[in-house]
């Protein structure tokens, strides 16, 4: 490139205002100092937000509906395992279950009916075969004497079915399908 252009190019100098800006940057206390610090803060903020979302997802997904009887959480027992309970009761007596959920949960029953109570014992549904709840509740399951009773619980896309059996001694068994 001709020397003329090179000389013209090298005659360009930064404005004095830039020198002042840069020098004032080094005078500012480090904690209030620069854009880089803001960028770093934003990165941490983004990371924290992402972690919060992931943690919330894990936490919320862990809150699937839980069905309890005699303080035993039925949904935590292995599939096809049986939970015997309520010995020496007539098959026609209602069976009390506690459902723990914080999201919309569909309940349906075959071979019986159910009454649903809130945890403060308000009757929510009476003698229904299906309903929806979105909070903890108590299920009084009324089996038909002639049939096995199957309770289906479907919350957060995780359906589970529980079959109620009675043996000749009047002991109940709930089996998770």
């Amino acid at each position: 490139m001709s020397q003329r252009y090179a000389d013209a190019y090298r005659s360009i100098l930064p404005p004095d205002s830039l020198r002042e800006k840069v020098l004032s940057t080094s005078d500012v206390p480090a904690t209030q100092n620069n854009k880089g610090r803001i960028v770093m803060f934003r990165r941490f903020a983004c990371l924290a937000a992402c972690l919060a979302v992931v943690a919330a997802g894990v936490f919320v997904s862990g809150q699937k509906p839980q069905l309890q009887v005699n303080n035993e959480i039925l949904s935590s027992v292995p599939a096809a395992a049986s939970v015997p309970f309520a010995a020496r009761r007539s098959m026609t007596q209602p069976v009390g279950l506690v459902l723990t959920t914080d999201s919309r949960t569909e309940l349906s029953v075959q071979g019986g009916t159910m009454n649903i109570f809130s945890t403060d014992t308000q009757l929510l549904f009476e003698n229904v075969t299906q309903c929806e709840v979105d909070a903890d509740c108590i299920i009084l399951l009324q089996p038909d004497a002639a049939n096995n009773t199957v309770l289906q619980v479907n919350g957060r896309g995780l359906p589970a079915a529980y079959t109620l059996f009675a043996d000749e001694n009047g002991n109940y068994t709930l089996t998770r399908e």
Binding site: Y9, L13, P14, L18
Partner: peptide
């Protein structure tokens, strides 16, 4: 270093304000 840095940034970016920003950012870095 500032003169070389400023001219180079000006040649790449094409305007003085952006060139000043680039130089200042490098010193901060």
């Amino acid at each position: 270093h500032a003169a070389q840095m400023y001219r180079t940034a000006l040649a790449v970016l094409g305007n003085t304000q952006d060139a000043e920003d680039a130089v200042q950012d490098v010193f901060i870095s």
